[in-house]
């Protein structure tokens, strides 16, 4: 089977073709889709799983939290000077720093995970942009290609 390309102007036509292809036994690996905007229905059709991105967020957030708490406690203990009548290891303020770093590292890790999983930046496409514009495109790759 040759590689076939279908182009659609309307989302509905695109979705029904996709449905048809999936029913005819085309596997997901053979399909390449291009969309002008995010269509949640496609994910439902292909029954995509949540994917690993959330674990990037979780790992980043957790390490930020522990790292922030660790940083505060370590630095406070390395020069144990009482200020403002507060205990050396004052958890309430340290929790603020830990929380902020959890958010920071969590977001940055998610962003890094996104770049990794979406394979961005794409070098070929930076130099010679290929673009299907506002069309919905289905590319069905032939066997063995």
């Amino acid at each position: 089977m040759m590689t076939q390309t279908y182009q659609y102007e309307e989302a509905e036509a695109f979705l029904s073709k996709l449905r048809e292809l999936l029913q005819s036994g085309i596997s997901q690996e053979q399909l390449e889709l291009q969309l002008p905007y995010h269509l949640p229905e496609v994910e439902q059709l292909l029954e995509l799983r949540p994917g690993p991105l959330r674990f990037f967020a979780l790992t980043g957030g957790l390490s930020g939290f522990l790292g922030g708490l660790g940083l505060c406690i370590y630095t406070a203990l390395s020069w144990p000077l009482i200020t403002g009548g507060k205990p050396i290891v004052s958890l309430p303020p340290f929790l603020i720093i830990a929380y902020l770093l959890a958010v920071l590292f969590g977001s940055l890790a998610s962003f890094a995970g996104f770049l990794l999983l979406a394979r961005l930046p794409k070098r070929d496409n930076l130099l010679e942009p290929s673009d299907f514009g506002n069309h919905f495109v289905i590319v069905v790759k032939g066997e063995g290609q």
């Binding site: 390449e32 889709l33 291009q34 969309l35 002008p36 995010h38 269509l39 949640p40 496609v42 994910e43 292909l46 995509l48 949540p50 994917g51 991105l53 959330r54 967020a57 957030g61 958010v103 969590g106 977001s107 998610s110 962003f111 995970g113 996104f114 770049l115 999983l117 979406a118 394979r119 961005l120 930046p121 794409k122 070098r123 070929d124 496409n125 930076l126 942009p129 290929s130 673009d131 299907f132």
Partner: peptide, 23 residues
């Protein structure tokens, strides 16, 4: 970044956007 709008990109994009909004 050489965005093409492939399904793989949109999928990760929508997930990332949700996570960032949640953070």
């Amino acid at each position: 970044l050489g965005w093409t709008g492939s399904l793989g990109q949109w999928k990760q994009y929508s997930r990332l956007y949700l996570l960032l909004a949640a953070f």
